[in-house]
């Protein structure tokens, strides 16, 4: 088991880029005074990021995924996280087994 120099350079470049992104936001936010508007905007980052990650899966992958996303969202209104997420996983597995 060896590490090739070119591969190592690539891994380090990727790691540096990713670490920079991980630190940049915190660094910037610490150095500016947050007005109420910016504070409010930052509060919308979690839903905005999560929606951006989920939307293509939810709406463009296939009927099984779209239906399972809807089931999960509805289950989340009543059930705790693990139960709601499980409902989604079971839905997608069953629908895929049925050929959707």
């Amino acid at each position: 088991m060896t590490i090739d120099p070119a591969t190592l350079a690539t891994i380090l470049a990727m790691a540096a880029a990713t670490l920079a992104a991980r630190l940049a936001g915190a660094f910037l936010v610490r150095r500016i005074t947050l007005g109420p508007k910016l504070e409010q905007a930052l509060n919308t980052v979690p839903p905005a990021v999560l929606m951006a990650v989920v939307a293509p899966t939810a709406l463009t992958t296939g009927p099984a995924e779209t239906a399972a996303c809807a089931v999960t969202a509805l289950a989340a209104l009543r059930l705790p996280m693990l139960a709601a997420a499980t409902a989604g996983v079971v839905t997608v597995a069953v629908l895929r087994a049925l050929g959707f």
Binding site: T10, M14, A21, A24, G25, L42, V49
Partner: peptide, 24 residues
């Protein structure tokens, strides 16, 4: 390596927003 490092930065741009939010 340079292209792959740049691709990693683009894919992970959201981490900038995420760390800004988590900092608080």
């Amino acid at each position: 390596w340079a292209a792959l490092g740049f691709a990693a930065l683009l894919v992970n741009l959201r981490l900038i927003l995420m760390s800004a939010s988590l900092e608080r």
